[in-house]
Design a protein around this nucleic acid. Sequence first.
DNA 1: AATTGTGAATTGATTCACAGCT
DNA 2: AGCTGTGAATCAATTCACAATT
Lengths: 203, 203
Amino acid sequence: MAKDVIPRKTVYRLSVYQRCLQRLKVNDVERVSSEALAKAAGVKPTQLRKDLAYFGQFGTRGLGYNISQLSEKLTQVLGTTRLQPVILIGVGNLGSALMSYQGFNKEGFEIVAGFDIEMPPKITDVPVFPLEKLSGFITEHNIKMAILTVPARRAQEVVNQIVEAGIQAVLNFTPIILQVPDNVVVNNVDLAIELENLSYFIR
Amino acid sequence: MAKDVIPRKTVYRLSVYQRCLQRLKVNDVERVSSEALAKAAGVKPTQLRKDLAYFGQFGTRGLGYNISQLSEKLTQVLGTTRLQPVILIGVGNLGSALMSYQGFNKEGFEIVAGFDIEMPPKITDVPVFPLEKLSGFITEHNIKMAILTVPARRAQEVVNQIVEAGIQAVLNFTPIILQVPDNVVVNNVDLAIELENLSYFIR
DNA sequence: AATTGTGAATTGATTCACAGCT
DNA sequence: AGCTGTGAATCAATTCACAATT
């Protein structure tokens, strides 16, 4: 029935489903039921079906979903067909860790450059440039996504600068809630808060 | 009015408020209005007030909240008074990155040990032990929290083992949705999904 | 017989609107 | 006058229940 606007949470879960499908593909399974896929994704079967319903009908009643077909459709909806170049700003402790982390590349993202005030010891093949080159690089290479791992006090000013230069999406590892215009998306990852949150639930 | 059960999302936001308060404290401000604090936390003022209402009344009408008083109360509610020991399992790329990341210590968590099949080059003061010592260490030191950065295919078996040994909370960096008993909490952090999710919103 | 797709019902979260303090 | 605290209203997300399909 293909609704017009897909809720943020649904979009997020689509990525989770996609991951699960990829693992199933490797195992040479051809079809999967909403019940099985939902279990792997940690949701209820009805929720999975509702989520998929936002962008069409893909299952076969009585049989379930064709894995590669559904996976392809998800790729299409999520727009992850092409490789996305990403820059990383703040090559400190966490920043350099993320630069050497290979997990992104597998999923279609490539950190093409790092930026910092100081030049850190070269640890990966990814080039690191001084902050003065930041805006120029973004415009020149038409970069849309940035990972922000600068110290908290620099976060807002850096974001202002990169948004100005054309960045449209930011993965923010600083504890600051960034103020950005409506056309820019920010996802926050705060590892300390995740731990703090967990600790609340242990008695 | 102190309700009995605090929603998960509220608990999460309490940590965010706490962070914002800490920054204000450094700036030597004494009071803050729900409007100002909410803005810093990226929520609406009414939501902040509703969240706080779950565990009591702390503001002064007409004046706002006393920062250190509110912060102290939050610490109490969140149970982050004492330092929590945490172990990290899987000292690969991301794992060793997190071990050297100092962000946790600031917020009351200490990674006391790492575990892996292979012994990685020693990069921090944190000791790394072979997996055989895992269960014993957890029981002996009464560890409640674990960070999981093992390869996906090992994730479920490792979790079974640590839950058995007494772990009650897991910060899971693997893309697997872990199956755990009801008394165990899991928070998932999937960096690739965060990026994929962002990329959906850039046109 | 099995399993999807979906309107209706339910549950949960957010926001409004304003009464109640200081 | 200013700002919190909260019941009521609204809005959003989830789950139910079952008809439709293979």
